[in-house]
Simulated assay, not measured.
Amino acid sequence: MFGTVWFSLCCLFGVFGVTDELSLVSVLEGDSVTLHADREMRNNDLILWRFGPENTLIVQINVTESSLTVNEDYDGRFRGSVKVDHQTGCLTITNTRTEHAGRYQLQSGNRRTFFILVVYGDLAEKGEMKPVSVMEGESVSLHTDTELRKNDLIVWSFGKNRIAQINGTTQDVTVYDALQGIFTDRLNVDQQSGSLTITGTTTVHTGVYLLAINNIKKIFVLSVYACLPVPVIFSQCPPSSSQYSSVLCSAVNVSSVTLSWFKGNRLLSSISVSDFSSSLSLPLAVDYQDENTYSCVLNNSFSAQTQHLDASQLCSVRGCQTVEAVIRLVAAALVGVAASAAVVVLIYDIRSRRAEQD
Rank of each mutant, 00 (worst) to 15 (best):
H143T: 10
I347T: 14
L57F: 06
F16D: 03
V189Q: 01
D275I: 05
V15H: 02
L280E: 07
I219H: 06
L211V: 10
L280S: 10
F51P: 02
C320H: 00
F7C: 08
T94C: 09
T258G: 05
S295A: 14
D45C: 06
T4N: 11
I61C: 08
D177F: 01
R79D: 11
L314N: 01
G52N: 03
L179F: 12
V337Y: 05
L228V: 07
T258Q: 07
Q87W: 10
L57G: 05
K217E: 15
S133A: 12
V132S: 00
L346Q: 06
K218S: 12
Y120G: 01
L268P: 01
Q191D: 11
G17P: 03
L91Y: 02
E128F: 03
T56N: 12
R39Q: 09
W261L: 02
L228S: 00
V5K: 05
V326W: 02
V317K: 04
W6Q: 14
T201W: 01
I350G: 04
P131I: 02
L248H: 01
K130H: 05
T146A: 15
Q243Y: 05
R318E: 08
R112D: 00
S256Y: 03
Q87N: 13
F262R: 03
L196N: 03
S303Y: 08
C237E: 00
G17E: 05
I347Q: 13
D152N: 14
L248G: 01
S133L: 04
C10P: 09
I233E: 07
R351M: 09
L57A: 10
V326H: 01
V335G: 14
V344I: 15
C237M: 06
A37N: 10
E128Q: 06
N71S: 10
E72A: 11
G52D: 04
V5A: 07
I154V: 15
A101E: 02
L106R: 03
S141R: 11
S250T: 04
E125M: 05
V224F: 04
R351S: 09
S245C: 08
L280P: 04
R97A: 03
N71C: 04
A251S: 10
C90F: 08
L284P: 09
V63Q: 07
S277I: 11
Q171G: 06
V326S: 00
T197W: 02
V204A: 06
G200N: 13
I216Y: 15
D38L: 14
Y244C: 06
E54V: 12
I47F: 05
I271K: 07
S312T: 10
A304F: 15
H86S: 10
S250M: 07
S279R: 07
F2H: 13
H143N: 11
L28E: 11
R97C: 02
T258E: 05
